[in-house]
Design a protein around this nucleic acid. Structure first.
Length: 264
DNA sequence: CGAGATGTTCGGCT
DNA sequence: AAGCCGAACATCTC
């Protein structure tokens, strides 16, 4: 489920435990989720540490604890964060739980495409510092985006929007939303985008990310009613602008939906 | 029961 | 040789 804005929403679910000590950390060992992580060291480091603050960038969340403990969580396709009572016992799909006095912070992920990162030290780990500029940041400039698309001249623009090193946090529904709002056919090759369309794409990408963060990211409220997102899930979905049935195809390996009239 | 799902990664082909 | 594609990952839902 989660991309940029949903990730930001889930990050805040753990706010209930801010500035409180973790009395115990439990995890399901040997899960794919923990590949590359020393599970024993992670559990030991979290136990007795205090949850200080958190931040989300792209589709990754970083939770900071006292003693220089850094916990990264990527939700993959079906990951979620939630809060349970301190007595909560790990369910089948719960992989990590931080027990505190008043509540327990839970990370669950049925499909296990998610991932946990761990680091202990005063310096921020590279899995957190080496992320590309956020689409909503001043560093995400039109020339930067244009240079990337030029390098991927033979790639369909829909596929390009899913490349995380260029559009960090943009996932399948956001890519479709951006292209629909910008009036660009998802099948168009990046090398065929004229300057005017590149500007529209750049502006729209920033706008969609900003509004998504302000709605879904803030409290999981719906984005504007006239957005494509409300139509694209349904087999019978129509274009919010002209009411034409949406077209469907697999582009860049993902289900893509667009309006055959509005998007050229 | 088969197909597909809002993500990433790897291997192989061009 | 970089770039692109499909498959794999694991489980649930329609």
């Amino acid at each position: 489920m989660p991309e940029l804005a949903e990730v930001e929403f889930f990050r805040k679910q753990w706010d209930a435990g801010l500035r409180q000590k973790v009395t115990r950390a439990e995890l399901h060992r040997g899960q794919r989720i923990f590949r590359g992580v020393n599970e024993s060291r992670l559990a030991a480091a979290l136990q007795g540490s205090t949850y200080l603050d958190s931040e989300a960038r792209a589709k990754l969340m970083c939770f900071r604890f006292s003693r220089g403990v850094w916990l990264g969580i990527h939700l993959g396709m079906t990951g979620k964060l939630r809060v349970e009572s301190p007595a909560f016992a790990l369910g089948k799909h719960d992989h990590l739980i931080l027990v505190q006095k008043k509540q327990a912070l839970v990370f669950s992920d049925p499909r296990k495409f998610g991932r946990v990162h761990f680091h202990q030290g005063m310096e921020a780990p590279t899995w957190w510092t080496k992320l590309p500029p956020a689409v909503t940041s001043p560093e995400f400039t039109l020339p930067l985006m244009t240079a990337f698309l030029q390098r991927r001249a033979r790639l369909a623009v829909k596929a390009a929007l899913l490349v995380q090193s260029a559009f960090p946090g943009v996932g399948n529904w956001m890519a479709d939303e951006i292209l629909w709002q910008a009036g660009i056919d998802p099948r168009v090759l990046c090398g065929r985008l004229a300057a005017k369309r590149l500007t529209a794409l750049w502006q729209t990408a920033r706008e969609v990310c900003t509004v998504a963060l302000d709605t879904i990211g803030a409290d999981f409220s719906d984005p504007p009613e006239d957005w494509l997102i409300h139509q694209r899930w349904s087999k019978t979905g129509v274009c919010p602008r002209d009411g034409l049935p949406l077209k469907t195809a697999t582009i860049g390996g993902r289900t893509t939906r667009w309006c055959p009239r509005c998007q050229r």
